[in-house]
C-alpha cells in the first residue's frame, strides 16, 4: 500500500507535491500509530488532492493552510500500533545490532563477549525515538509543540550516547560464556525461523545467525578456523548478492 501511495504522490507536481510529501512524511513518522491505518488515510488524502488538482485547486487550498494541526487531529483518531507491528518495526534493527555486537566480540583480542555488548540494542530504540521527536520540522510554520518536541529530541540525542559511554566506562560487565552466547544465537535463529513464514527477509537473518553460530563453535577449537568460516561466509554472501543483482538487472533490461 505504501508503494502504491508513493506512486500516486508522484502524480502531483511542484508545490502540490512538496506540500503532500511533507504531510505524508509527518503522518508516517508517528511510530505509535497503526501503519496500515496511516497508509489508508494517505490514500484518501492523495485521492482528494489529485481530484482537487484536476479541478485547479492546489493541495494547500484542498487540505488547508495549517496541515500540522489537521494531521495531529487525524492521528488522534487512528488506532495505536499493535505489539505485532512493533515487532515488525524493531525486528530487523534488533537482528542487525545484535549480530553486529557478537561480530565485534569475535574480532576482539582475546576473543570474548560481555553482557555490555547488548548495549548496542539501545541504538534502534534511539533511532526510532529520534525520528519521532524530529517529525514536523519540514513544515513551513513550526508550532510550539514541534519546537518543544525537537528540543526534547536534541537533549535525548546527545544524552543517550553520553550515558551509554559513561555506563561503559564505569561498569565492568561480566563476560558471557560461549555456551550462553550460543544460547542467545539459537534463540535468534528460532525467532527468525518462526518469522520466515511471514517475512522472506528472515531467511537472510537465519543465514547470518547460522554462520555466527558455526564461527563461535569452530572458534572454540581454533580462532583462525572460526574466522576463516566467517570470511568464507561473507564472501559467499557477497557473491550471491552480486548474482542476484545481475539477475534482477537482466530481468529489468
Amino acid at each position: 500500500m505504501k508503494r502504491v501511495n508513493d506512486q500516486h504522490l508522484a502524480q502531483l507536481h511542484g508545490l502540490d507535491h512538496a506540500y503532500m510529501d511533507t504531510l505524508i512524511t509527518y503522518l508516517r513518522r508517528d511510530w505509535g500509530k497503526d501503519p496500515q491505518a496511516i497508509e489508508s488515510v494517505i490514500q484518501d488524502l492523495l485521492e482528494g488532492a489529485l481530484t482537487a488538482s484536476q479541478s485547479g485547486v492546489s493541495a494547500k487550498g484542498y487540505f488547508g493552510a495549517d496541515p500540522q494541526v489537521a494531521a495531529d487531529a487525524i492521528l488522534a483518531e487512528l488506532p495505536r500500533r499493535t505489539a505485532a507491528q512493533w515487532r515488525q518495526l524493531l525486528w530487523p534493527l534488533a537482528n542487525f545490532y545484535l549480530a553486529f555486537a557478537f561480530l565485534e566480540g569475535l574480532l576482539r583480542q582475546p576473543m570474548r563477549w560481555t553482557l555490555g555488548d547488548l548495549r548496542l540494542l539501545v541504538i534502534p530504540f534511539v533511532m526510532v525515538a529520534t525520528t519521532w521527536f524530529f517529525r514536523g520540522i519540514s513544515f513551513n510554520r513550526l508550532n510550539q509543540r514541534t519546537k518543544r518536541r525537537v528540543l526534547v529530541g536534541m537533549v535525548l540525542f546527545l544524552a543517550i550516547p553520553l550515558v551509554d559511554g559513561f555506563v561503559g566506562e564505569v561498569i565492568t560487565f561480566p563476560s558471557l560464556p560461549a555456551n550462553a552466547l550460543l544460547g542467545v544465537i539459537a534463540l535468534m535463529l528460532v525467532w527468525d525461523l518462526a518469522a520466515w513464514r511471514k517475512r522472506r527477509d528472515a531467511a537472510w537473518w537465519v543465514g547470518v545467525w547460522g554462520v555466527l553460530a558455526a564461527t563461535v563453535v569452530i572458534s572454540q577449537w581454533s580462532v583462525a578456523n572460526g574466522l576463516l568460516v566467517l570470511i568464507a561466509a561473507v564472501n559467499i554472501g557477497l557473491w550471491l548478492a552480486a548474482l542476484l543483482v545481475t539477475q534482477v538487472a537482466d530481468v529489468a533490461v
Binding site: V41, D44, L45, G48, G61, Y62, F63, G64, A65, D66, P67, V69, A70, A71, A73, I74, A76, E77
Partner: peptide, 9 residues
Amino acid sequence: TVPEGTIYP
C-alpha cells in the same frame, strides 16, 4: 471553503 484538514478528522 472548509479545508479537508478540518473535514477529514
